[in-house]
Design a binder for these strands. Sequence first.
DNA 1: TCTGGGGTCCTAGGACCC
DNA 2: TCTGGGGTCCTAGGACCC
Length: 411
Amino acid sequence: MDVPGILHADLDAFYAAVAVLENPSLVGKAVAVGSGVVLSCTYEAREFGVRGGMRVVDARARCPHLILVEGVFGSYTEYSRTVFDIFESYTPFVEPLSIDEAFLDVTGSVHLFGSPADIARRIRRDVRKQTGLAVSVGVTGRKFLSKIASQVAKPDGMIVVQPGQELEFLHPLQVSHLWGVGPVTERKLGELGLETIGDIATTPIDALIAMLGSAAAHHLHALANNHDPRPVERTRRARSVGAQSALRPERRTMEDLLPILQRLTDRVASRLRAKGRSARTVTVRVRFGDLSSVTRSATVRSPTASTAALMAIERRLLQKVLDRYPKHEITLLGVSTSGLGFDEPIQLAFDVDDDALGGGTPHEIGSRALDESVDEVRRRFGRDILAHGSDLLSERTDFSDGLAEVMIKDD
DNA sequence: TCTGGGGTCCTAGGACCC
DNA sequence: TCTGGGGTCCTAGGACCC
């Protein structure tokens, strides 16, 4: 008999559980982590209707004795590392989904540690013993099904779905259990009278396509029939890096918005550099008084992680929005970078004093050099640098739309 | 009921090239 | 010269997830 070999392990109420571990007087109490909104809360708080994502004032209204604690990010990463080390002691095939959950393919580990269900039990025991945290586990032969099983198993449980029993387990569940069904899709499905996963499985694919579009329809139809060929993948590279801020929409002028833009861009650029990545596409998101929002994006030829270069692009995008919506109350919602490339050694063809640039990786030095040259170009020519090339491209230098492209070459 | 910050993926239309 | 098909890239927006 085949053994189901894919586990989904998910720590229960992770941030709240860590808060309780670090302050034993909180054991058994209704505790929430967060400020402004609830990031995580204990099951004692959930009994009163408190949920993650809820505003703290609303949570307090439902649960007046709620104890609110601030998050401590350092402890979370420490606990997380310990837990992931335990995962990796059972299989090298661990795919992190977030700080507190992962897929594990244990198919190759059964001769060492026993059946997948045995391994799940051992992991739960090890995590409990070494950290004090509860982890719920789903054990099946498919990623999506194990994810659903672990959710159903919570809190502090495990569910094993044996081969041949998958549809029996799956079909009675509400559609919202499926990964990819949120409020909008749930409502659309409901309009067709589809409430359970079994309903989706028996609906002709064409009807789903008409309602949801091709990709979503095929995706949900496949999952509802227990088809999910996706393997457990050990690493996944980030595809975008962004930063958000949520101020009330009231500011209007470029001068008001620039400091916010600078702060967000600093965050994004330094995180890009820390990862050794650079971005080709830059997106600016703006929110209006009625809470609707728009985006403007631009793609440049060569990836950059330079704060000043990103700022120059974002400024233009922001100006585009201001020109298009001159009367609106607006705020800057966020900036995001995608089309990520890798750390490239770069050297400025522009006139920059090497000694002034300090140490670091070539990428860091290059990014700082670009920062300086953007400022210098602005001083000398009154222009912004839009992009830089990976080859020497003096003939591409283009002031036609008010921007220069700076020349940078590979070393 | 949009309050938080960080992401992923998909769609649709247009430009451009062969 | 016109029509058509296919592919790629870019832009803008939206749904969903943790």
